[in-house]
Amino acid sequence: MGGDAFVYLARIKTTPRELWRALTEPQFTERYWGLSFDTDWAPGSPMTWAERGGSIADPGQRVLEADPPRRLAYTWHTFTPEWAERARVGEDALAAIAAEPRSQVAFDLEPGAGTVRLKVTHDGFEPGSRVRGMVVEGWPELVSSLKTLLETGEPLPG
């Protein structure tokens, strides 16, 4: 983990198996994240990201680790013009983030007394990374919606 890693911790009232499912299965990810992954979750396998009516497939998008229900890690998606249009990211911002090295995210699940401690580590950033700035804002919102979904049955409103 590099010095510019972003780490976010949450306790979620669920089981490790349910949290794993929520991180990997489309019927969950689509509800709190608005996307799904097409992959078999085997280390080294490719991942296609599907969101907002489009998909992102790139050879660099790979599963890095999968140890259910303890640890999941994968490379972050490729920033394409189609993604930028769907995400409302301007051309200048797209050029800047597309020029950065690919980052990666890891989810560590640790069972506790009636809860699971989720540690999200997103790293691989260069100093001053614009992508890091985006994930610093994104992960807390996303994990909050995931937590709410698992604890109440409904994600946070869009």
Rank of each mutant, 00 (worst) to 15 (best):
G2S: 15
Y8E: 12
R11G: 07
T14E: 01
T15V: 04
R17A: 15
E18S: 07
E18V: 03
L19R: 00
W20M: 00
R21D: 15
L23M: 06
E25L: 10
E25W: 00
E25D: 13
E25A: 14
P26S: 14
Q27N: 13
F28E: 10
Y32P: 05
W33E: 09
L35M: 14
L35G: 07
L35E: 10
S36V: 03
F37M: 13
D38H: 11
T39N: 05
D40C: 03
W41P: 03
W41S: 02
A42Q: 14
A42L: 11
A42E: 12
A42P: 00
P46S: 14
P46V: 09
T48C: 07
T48L: 10
T48G: 03
W49N: 07
A50W: 09
A50C: 14
E51R: 13
G53D: 08
G53S: 08
G53K: 08
G54V: 14
S55Y: 12
S55N: 11
I56R: 11
A57D: 10
D58V: 05
Q61Y: 13
R62T: 05
R62Q: 08
V63N: 04
L64Y: 03
L64G: 00
A66T: 02
A66I: 01
D67H: 10
P68H: 02
P68E: 02
P69I: 02
R70W: 05
L72R: 04
A73D: 02
A73S: 14
Y74H: 15
Y74R: 14
H77S: 11
T78Y: 11
P81R: 08
E82R: 12
W83V: 04
W83F: 15
A84L: 06
A84K: 03
A87G: 01
R88T: 11
G90I: 00
D92E: 15
A93D: 15
L94V: 04
L94C: 06
A95S: 12
A96V: 13
A99D: 11
E100R: 10
E100W: 10
P101E: 08
S103E: 03
Q104I: 04
V105D: 05
V105F: 07
A106M: 12
F107W: 13
F107Y: 15
F107D: 01
D108R: 14
L109P: 03
P111A: 01
A113W: 06
G114I: 00
T115R: 10
L118T: 01
K119M: 12
T121R: 15
D123W: 07
S129I: 09
R130M: 13
R132L: 12
G133E: 10
V135Q: 06
E137R: 13
E137V: 09
G138W: 10
P140H: 09
E141Q: 15
V143N: 02
S144E: 14
S144N: 13
S144P: 03
S145H: 06
L146K: 08
K147D: 07
K147G: 05
L149F: 09
L150G: 05
L150Q: 06
L150R: 02
E151F: 02
G153F: 09
P155W: 11
P157T: 06
P157G: 05
G158V: 12
